[in-house]
Write a protein that binds this DNA or RNA. Structure first.
Length: 771
DNA sequence: TTAATCGTACTTTTT
DNA sequence: GTACGATTAA
C-alpha cells in the first residue's frame, strides 16, 4: 500500500489521482470519490469497507483540502476505531491523529468534557459503566424498601436505559409507559437515578449520547459551532446505531450535509441494545438527495463459504437486496463436527486445530473459535490448555470490570472528585476497616438531611452519631485520601497510585490471604499499575482525569491482538469486523444458537440468523460447524437438539467429518416461536437404542491420517477429571466417572463400554488420554 | 455491629 | 466457577 505524508495543510500541489485509487474496484472508487452530500454505502461482509472509509478520508484531505480535525469518523467499537486509525496513519501520516475518530461514546465524551459546564457538570465527570449503574439502582431500590431479589436491579436498569435511549423523560414514562408494577417501580427509580447521577457528577453510557443532544438542543450557538466545524461526518456500522446516535449525528450533519454512512443490514446484531435497523433502511428518506453505493464484491471468503452464508441470510424476510460475489476460489467444503457433549466438542476442535495447523503449516493465529455465549469458553480453554494450544480469550469479564480493578478505579475517582458518593461507598470498607452497613446508612441519612455529600460528612465524622469503633476506620480512610492528594501534587501518577495502594492497605490484604484467588487479584492490581505507568509515559496529557476517562470506555475486546500467535476464542458478537483463515462456529444447538428465549423476552430469530451470518462470513478459507448432543446447563446435563440453522444451510457445501452429507430434515420447529409445535414428532439423530457416543469409537485416533500427534499421555503429571475419555490397553475406551487425587497416584473410577465400571490406579493402568 | 462462612442461583450478546 | 444473600460466630 502506498504511503503518503501530508505536508503542511494548504499550499501543496496534491496528485490529482493518488495511486491509492488504483487498487479499488469501480464501486469502491465511486464511494471514495463521492465527497459532498449524503452517501449511503451498503457494504456486504468482506467487501473492503474499511479500505473505502480510509481512502475516502485520505481523499477528503488530499482533494478537498479538508483539515483532519474537521472530519468526524464514528465507529461502534474501539477495535474498529483503532484499526481505521492505523490504516489512515499509513496513508496520510501522523496527521491522522488529529481526526475526530473513535467510538460514538469516546468522541462524544470528548465533546462533553469541553462543554461540561453548559450541562451543569464539571469536566472531570465520572463515567458509570453498566455495573456502576446497577449498583446505584440497587441502592435506590433498597432505599425504597424494595426486595432486590424480586425486583432485579438489572431489569430496572434495562428498562431505564431503554427509556433513556428513546428519549422518554421520567415524567412521560410514568404517565404513558407504565405497564405493570415493575414498570411503576422503574419509573420511580428512573427519576431518582437521574438525580443521583447528576449529584455525583457522573454519566452513564447512555448519557454520553444523550447529553450531547440535550446540549445541542438547548444551546443553538454551540450546535452551530460544531456543525460548522465538522465538514465531513462518517459513520461505520450504521445498522447498529440507536435512536440517540441517529439524532445526534442528524443534528451535526444539518450544517454541511456531508454525511456518509456505511453499513450492512444483514449484520445488524445489536437490537438488544437499542440498535434500530430502520436507521439504515430509512437513510434515503431522512437525507434527501442522497446517493447509494452497494459494495457486493467479497474479497475475503471462498465461494463455498459465501454460498453458505447466502443460503442462510436468504431465509430472512426483511433486508435490503444485495448479492455478494467473489473471484476467490471455490474452496473446501464446510465440515460439520458432531459431538457427544461439550467436552467432546472442545477436544475435537482442539485436535482438529492441531492437526490442521501442522498439516497446512498454519499458525495458531489463523484460527478462531466462535461461540454464542461467553460461558462456553471455559470448556474450550480446558481442552486447549491440556493440549498446550496457545489461545487468547477475548471478551468475557472485562479487565476493567473486575472487582479489584473497579475498587482501584473508585479510589482514583475520589482523588479527582470527592463528591462521588458511589465511589466512597465502594471502597470505604475495602480493605475492611470496621465500617459496616449500619454505619454507612447512618452516614448517608445524615448526608441527605444536611444536603451534603458523603465526603463532607466523613470529613467531620466526630459529630456524627454512629457506632464508635467505626469512627477510627473512617478517619483512617479520610486520612489516606488526603495524604494521597498531597502526594499527587508533587509526585507522578504511578508513584501516587502505588503510594495509595500501599498506604490504604489495599494491596496488603491480598498478601495476607494466601488463596489462589487473592494472588490473581493482586496480579490484576499490579497490571493496573503497569497500565497507569504506560499511560503516564505515552500520553501527552497524563493527568489522572484523562486516564479515568480513557479506561472507562475500554473493553476487553480491545485486548485482542491479531499478531499474537494464539488461537482466538470469542463470542460471535465480538468477532464482527474481524476475519480469520480458519473459523469454528460452535454450540450450534437449539436454545443456544439460536439462543432460547427466557421467560418474558422473546428471541428475534432473524437477528439470531444474522448473527450466524456474521459468524460464517468471518471465515476466509476453512469453516467448521460443531454441536454437542448433550450439554451441561444449569447444573445438569441436558440433551440438545442440533440448531435449525444447520437444516437451513445449503447442504451441498457442508459435509460431516466422515464425508456424509448433513441430513436435511423437514424442520419441525415453528419458526416464529422456536418451540416444537404440538403433535410434532421429533426424530433424534441417534435414537437411544442405537446411540453410539463418540467417545466409544475414537475414529480419528486409528489414524489413517498422515500426521499423527502425540498428546500428553503420560501419567506422572496428568490432570484427571471426570468426563475425560481414556484408552486402557485391555479394556479399550472408557470415560472417567470419578477421580481421587492427581498425577500417577490418582485413583480413578472409569466406565468402559466393554467391561463396565472399573476402579483403577493411574500409575498401573497405563492409560492414554484421548479427550 | 461487623466479619467470615456457607448455600444458592445464575449464565446473551457490549459501549 | 462466581457472586450474592442469608446465617452464624466474634
Amino acid at each position: 500500500m502506498p504511503t503518503f505524508v501530508l505536508k503542511n495543510d494548504d499550499s501543496q500541489d496534491y496528485p490529482t489521482n493518488p495511486p491509492f485509487l488504483e487498487d479499488v474496484n469501480e464501486r469502491q472508487r465511486e464511494a471514495v470519490l463521492h465527497t459532498d452530500g449524503p452517501l449511503l454505502i451498503i457494504a456486504g461482509a468482506g467487501s473492503g469497507k474499511t479500505r473505502v472509509l480510509t481512502y475516502r478520508i485520505a481523499n477528503l484531505i488530499y482533494q478537498k483540502r479538508t483539515r483532519p480535525n474537521q472530519i468526524i469518523a464514528l465507529t461502534f467499537t474501539n477495535k474498529a476505531a483503532r484499526e481505521m486509525q492505523e490504516r489512515i496513519v499509513n496513508l496520510i501520516g501522523e496527521q491522522a491523529k488529529r481526526l475526530w475518530m473513535g467510538t460514538f461514546h469516546s468522541v462524544f465524551s470528548r465533546i462533553l468534557r469541553i462543554e461540561a459546564e453548559h450541562l451543569g457538570y464539571t469536566p472531570d465527570f465520572s463515567i458509570y459503566d453498566t455495573v456502576d449503574s446497577e449498583r446505584v439502582i440497587k441502592m435506590i431500590l433498597r432505599e425504597m424498601n424494595m426486595n432486590t431479589r424480586e425486583i432485579k436491579p438489572q431489569k430496572v436498569r434495562h428498562i431505564i436505559s431503554t427509556a433513556k435511549n428513546q428519549m422518554i423523560s421520567p415524567e412521560i414514562f410514568q404517565d404513558k409507559y407504565v405497564q405493570g408494577p415493575l414498570y411503576d417501580i422503574a419509573g420511580q427509580v428512573y427519576r431518582r437515578y437521574l438525580e443521583r447521577c447528576k449529584r455525583n457528577n457522573s454519566m452513564d453510557f447512555d448519557d454520553l449520547l444523550l447529553k450531547p443532544i440535550e446540549l445541542f438542543e438547548h444551546n443553538p450557538d454551540i450546535l452551530q459551532k460544531y456543525q460548522q466545524h465538522f465538514r465531513y461526518i462518517l459513520i461505520d456500522e450504521y445498522q447498529d446505531t440507536n435512536h440517540a446516535q441517529y439524532r445526534v449525528t442528524n443534528l451535526l450533519a444539518a450544517g454541511h450535509k456531508n454525511i456518509c454512512v456505511v453499513g450492512d443490514d444483514s449484520q445488524s446484531i445489536y437490537s438488544f441494545r437499542g440498535a434500530d435497523i430502520t436507521n439504515i433502511l430509512n437513510f434515503r428518506r431522512d437525507y434527501p438527495g442522497s446517493v447509494q453505493v452497494p459494495l457486493e464484491q467479497n474479497y475475503r471468503s471462498t465461494k463455498v463459504i459465501l454460498k453458505c452464508a447466502d443460503s442462510v441470510i436468504k431465509k430472512n424476510k426483511s433486508r435490503l437486496d444485495k448479492t455478494l460475489w467473489t473471484r476467490n476460489d471455490d474452496g473446501e467444503v464446510i465440515t460439520l463436527i458432531e459431538n457427544y457433549d461439550e467436552r467432546d466438542e472442545a477436544n475435537r476442535i482442539a485436535r482438529t486445530i492441531e492437526e490442521k495447523r501442522i498439516r497446512q503449516n498454519l499458525s495458531y493465529r489463523d484460527f478462531a473459535v466462535l461461540y454464542r455465549t461467553n460461558y462456553q469458553s471455559r470448556v474450550l480453554e480446558d481442552a486447549f490448555r491440556r493440549r498446550g494450544i496457545l489461545y487468547q480469550l477475548v471478551g468475557g469479564i472485562s479487565f476493567y470490570q473486575r472487582k479489584e480493578i473497579k475498587d482501584v478505579t473508585a479510589y482514583l475517582r475520589l482523588l479527582v472528585n470527592q463528591h462521588d458518593d458511589e465511589s466512597i461507598l465502594r471502597v470505604i470498607n475495602e480493605p475492611t476497616r470496621g465500617i459496616g452497613e449500619k454505619t454507612l446508612s447512618a452516614l448517608l441519612k445524615k448526608a441527605r438531611k444536611e444536603e451534603k455529600s458523603l465526603w463532607e460528612i466523613i470529613m467531620d465524622v466526630e459529630s456524627a452519631d454512629i457506632y464508635k469503633p467505626a469512627i477510627r476506620g473512617i478517619r483512617e480512610f479520610v486520612d489516606v485520601l488526603k495524604r494521597t492528594e498531597k502526594k499527587l501534587k508533587k509526585s507522578g501518577l504511578t508513584d501516587t497510585v502505588r503510594f495509595l495502594l500501599e498506604e490504604s492497605g489495599y494491596l496488603r490484604q491480598f498478601i495476607e490471604e494466601h488463596s489462589h484467588e487473592s494472588l490473581m487479584r493482586r496480579q490484576n492490581v499490579m497490571e493496573m499499575l503497569n497500565a497507569i505507568s504506560y499511560f503516564e509515559k505515552s500520553s501527552n496529557e497524563p493527568s489522572l482525569g484523562t486516564f479515568l476517562q480513557e479506561i472507562s470506555l475500554v473493553t476487553d475486546l480491545d485486548s485482542h491482538d491479531s499478531n499474537e500467535p494464539a488461537v482466538t476464542l470469542m463470542t460471535v458478537h465480538g468477532s464482527k469486523g474481524l476475519e480469520f483463515p480458519v473459523v469454528f462456529i460452535t454450540g450450534l444447538e437449539e436454545e443456544l444458537f439460536p439462543i432460547g428465549g427466557r421467560t418474558g423476552d422473546q428471541v428475534d430469530i432473524e437477528e439470531e440468523r444474522r448473527l450466524f451470518y456474521v459468524a460464517i462470513t468471518r471465515a476466509e478459507n476453512y469453516l467448521y460447524f460443531s454441536y454437542a448432543k448433550n450439554r451441561f446447563r444449569f447444573g445438569d446435563q441436558v440433551e440438545m437438539r442440533r440448531s435449525r440453522f444447520l437444516d437451513e444451510v445449503d447442504s451441498s457445501v457442508v459435509r460431516t467429518e466422515t464425508g456424509a452429507t448433513i441430513r436435511q430434515k423437514g424442520s419441525q420447529i415453528s419458526s416464529s416461536t422456536g418451540r416444537r409445535l404440538p403433535g410434532d414428532t421429533y426424530i433424534s439423530y441417534d435414537s437411544p437404542a442405537r446411540r453410539e457416543p463418540e467417545w466409544e469409537s475414537p475414529k480419528s485416533d486409528n489414524s489413517d491420517s498422515t500426521v499423527s500427534i502425540e498428546y500428553d499421555s503420560t501419567q506422572e503429571n496428568a490432570v484427571w477429571r471426570p468426563g475425560m475419555v481414556i484408552i486402557h490397553p485391555k479394556f479399550g475406551a472408557g470415560k472417567i466417572l470419578q477421580c481421587q487425587g492427581q498425577g500417577e497416584d490418582a485413583r480413578l473410577t472409569v466406565f468402559f463400554k466393554k467391561v463396565g465400571q472399573k476402579k483403577l490406579v493411574a500409575k498401573l493402568a497405563n492409560l492414554t488420554i484421548i479427550g
